[in-house]
Amino acid sequence: MSNLSKYQTGKIPTWCSGCGNFLLISGLQKCFADQNIDTENIVAVYDIGCAGNMADFIHAYGLHTLHGRVVPVAMGVKLYNPKLTVLCIGGDGGIYGEGLNHLITAARANIDLKVFVSNNFLYSLTTGQTSPTTPYQAKTKSTPQGSPLIPLRAIELIKKVNPKVFAKTATNQKPKELFAKIKQAMEFKGFALLDIETECVAFGKQLKQ
């Protein structure tokens, strides 16, 4: 596995044990190794949130941006230097909420970015409030009476915006399939969005009530 280690910083991840982000980082590092991409040619752009905290754990060029702003920052990198492999990593809050306009724009441009959304249906780093994907009427800390909004179906939306882009859903429940889809997204020529459904081990229980 020495091939994998060159994509690791040596920092111990700060996620809860059993967090879905462990699978995402392994899938990404495996994919870098399989495709033999040099670390200096990878630019990983991270949102604010638990998924974005991956910034400290992947060895490559990285930008840990402001909340919601991964996509435009990544677009700037890619537009300026198209030879680079440019990824966006974030959660449903940042990428579908604060940054939705940017996501739609990148899909319209079909720019060669790989966007990985660790979708746990909640804002979790802020201890569990309703997010754009939270189910209708679900009770969360910010919606104790139930979420008043119907959830955003991001994959359907992006497919409508531009049918030519890669837009797929995966789940942490099926790691093998998840790894295959990460690979597909990385190999896709053009804009790719992979929505990874995952359960927050710390705050996800409230969604089941």
């Binding site: 435009p72 920052v73 677009m75 700037g76 990198v77 537009l79 940017h102």
Partner: peptide, 20 residues
């Protein structure tokens, strides 16, 4: 010409990071 001024600034920052 980006989608809004937030996109504008962040895009330019990304490009500057990449060497622009």
């Amino acid at each position: 010409h980006a989608e809004d001024e937030i996109g504008v600034a962040n895009m330019a920052a990304g490009a500057a990071f990449a060497g622009a």
